[in-house]
């Protein structure tokens, strides 16, 4: 699938995500808007997955370590055929399998349960190591938030991935520069990320994570070492009044804001 088609799908996913968060009255819309281009490229171009066989042994593994942006994953999985699209309307409803953080025992396509930060990368290292042991050809992808990289467990995993020579692992850091309470720079500034990952023995690519023409080749790149994509993104990308505003980490739009956001996202569909 070509970048322009992927961009069209990403806009549709943004629109459905916005609607789901608005209707549920909760969600993490800022970080969802920043990561949706990467999710779209993964599920509609890069990942070898079979929605009718979500446990296929040869499937590429994907872990959304920033599990609080589950709604974006659910919408993407639904659009790709893992779950019914109409089920998105149950997001956060009582007994829905679509709760605020993804559950692998209930939602096809989810590999491991995330939510507490700093969990996905160690699990992804285990997945990639398993492939090395078994000879399986699948590739493992994991997305973390940039604030999430403050969790020490990630750096334990980064060390191990290099030590194990995991050339079948790609980490994408959604570098939207904001965490829940403030800008990364004002909290515990990890930027620049590149030299830190390089110092640990990883190959690093920096891209505009909201530009499909840069996202796709970076995800498809194969390295002789573990590969980290520092994806420079915008929190709230695609919705002008949300963009790069920390208060949109998990704020819910009013009716007026919702209508405005729908109008902006609908323009190009």
């Amino acid at each position: 699938m070509e970048p322009t088609e992927l961009e069209r799908i990403a806009r549709q996913i943004r629109l459905r995500d916005l609607q789901a968060v608005y209707e549920a009255g909760a969600g993490h819309i800022g970080g969802e808007m920043s990561v949706i281009d990467i999710l779209t490229a993964l599920y509609f171009r890069v990942l070898r997955v079979w929605p009718d066989q979500p446990k296929h042994p040869e499937r590429d593994r994907f872990v959304l370590s920033k599990g609080h942006t589950a709604c974006a994953l659910y919408v993407t999985l639904a659009k790709r055929g893992f779950i019914p699209e109409e089920e998105i309307s149950t997001f956060l409803q009582p007994h829905s399998r679509l709760n605020g953080h993804p559950n692998n025992n209930k939602v096809p396509g989810v590999e491991t349960n995330t939510g507490p930060l700093g969990h996905g990368l160690p699990v992804a290292v285990g997945m990639a190591k398993a492939a090395k042991l078994s000879g399986a050809k699948y590739h493992t992808y994991v997305i973390t938030g940039d604030g999430e990289m403050q969790e020490g467990s990630n750096w334990e995993a980064i060390m191990a991935a290099a030590q194990f020579g995991l050339d079948n692992l790609t980490l994408v850091i959604d570098h939207n520069r904001f965490q829940q309470g403030a800008a990364l720079a004002d909290t515990n500034d990890l930027a620049p990320l590149r030299p830190k990952l390089e110092a640990f023995g990883w190959e690093v690519t920096e891209i505009n994570g909201n530009a499909m023409s840069e996202v796709v080749p970076a995800l498809e790149h194969r390295s002789s070492r573990p590969h980290c994509i520092v994806a420079h993104t915008n929190k709230g990308h695609g919705i002008s009044f949300m963009q790069d505003r920390v208060d949109w980490h998990h704020k819910v739009p009013s009716k007026e804001q919702y209508d405005l956001a729908v109008a902006e996202l609908s323009e190009a569909i």
């Binding site: 590999e111 491991t112 042991l133 334990e156």
Partner: peptide
């Protein structure tokens, strides 16, 4: 922490 996460990933694989 990594040890336990890696264990979960190995099981997944």
């Amino acid at each position: 922490q990594n040890m336990v996460g890696v264990g979960a990933g190995l099981a997944n694989g």
